[in-house]
Design a protein around this nucleic acid. Structure first.
Lengths: 136, 136
DNA sequence: GAGGTTATCGCAACTGCCCGCAATAGTGGC
DNA sequence: GCCACTATTGCGGGCAGTTGCGATAACCTC
């Protein structure tokens, strides 16, 4: 089942714009921003509006093809859903970012599930704090 | 030592705008938004610019008088630093919010400190996921 | 392949928030 | 009190992202 088929099966349409967003995400090897995707598409197809890119990222996310993460700035980071999930440590002072294994976050997820029935997505937002250097 | 003295000792100035922001934060009993603070101040002092409110919230945060938290929308929540810290569970589907004790988050903070030397502020961003009802 | 339905698009305007700049006004020293 | 210094302000404009709307174009049916 192709992405296009999956979309059609859900009453959605496979448009050129959608395909371009998917391609851009495939080319980007890691986290990307909507602005970056928009810019790379508009280099070849300037008539495609940034808002279309945003809406398509959301649509693809609803279908489970992409996910997004928030670090400690105002920019949303996007990645394909089939890339390996991981957590982020972001230093609020120097801005450094470190990726950490989900296994580190697992015990908290388990506890939230057990005590609150809450299915936590701990890859969704970075853990903010002070890195080793800045904590002093 | 009053807030004003503390500010002066750090080379900052106690302005009417600053005092109004502090007062608004004192009146608000829980999380507030900058927009809310701005609106309540501008009701009486319409000449005070929203950007001034934002800048003052940041200044007061640097001094340690207030902190902010991110739930799962684009709005920053502010509260006085002397209110009891706590975590948040936010459901990405129904939007429900639940407050949780910091003790639940403590073990992760301890582990991040031990394994990565990272001093995590786990009250800074909400844990996003699916609540008991939406997880099904 | 033509036609009708409606998901999606491009556009323009808007949001919460941030920033540069010239004008203003707290502050410490006299 | 008055002055000089400079932190802070209001303002205009920018940024990432969102939304309403009329026009367009994928899709299904025949």
């Amino acid at each position: 089942m192709t992405v296009a088929d999956d979309m059609r099966a859900k009453g959605m349409r496979m448009t050129v714009q959608r395909r371009l967003v998917l391609d851009a995400l495939r080319r980007a090897r890691h986290h990307t921003t909507a602005e970056e995707i928009s810019r790379s598409i508009r280099a070849s197809y300037p008539q495609i509006d940034p808002s279309t890119v945003y809406r398509n990222l959301e649509a693809l996310e609803r279908l489970g093809y992409v996910t997004h993460t928030h670090l400690d700035d105002r920019v949303t980071r996007w990645r394909r859903a089939d890339s390996r999930p991981h957590g982020h440590l972001v230093c609020r002072k120097c801005g450094s970012e470190e990726e950490i294994a989900m296994s580190v976050l697992e015990p908290l997820a388990k506890r939230l599930k057990g005590e609150h029935g809450f299915r936590a997505d701990l890859a969704h937002s970075a853990v903010v704090g002070l890195c080793r250097e800045c904590a002093g």
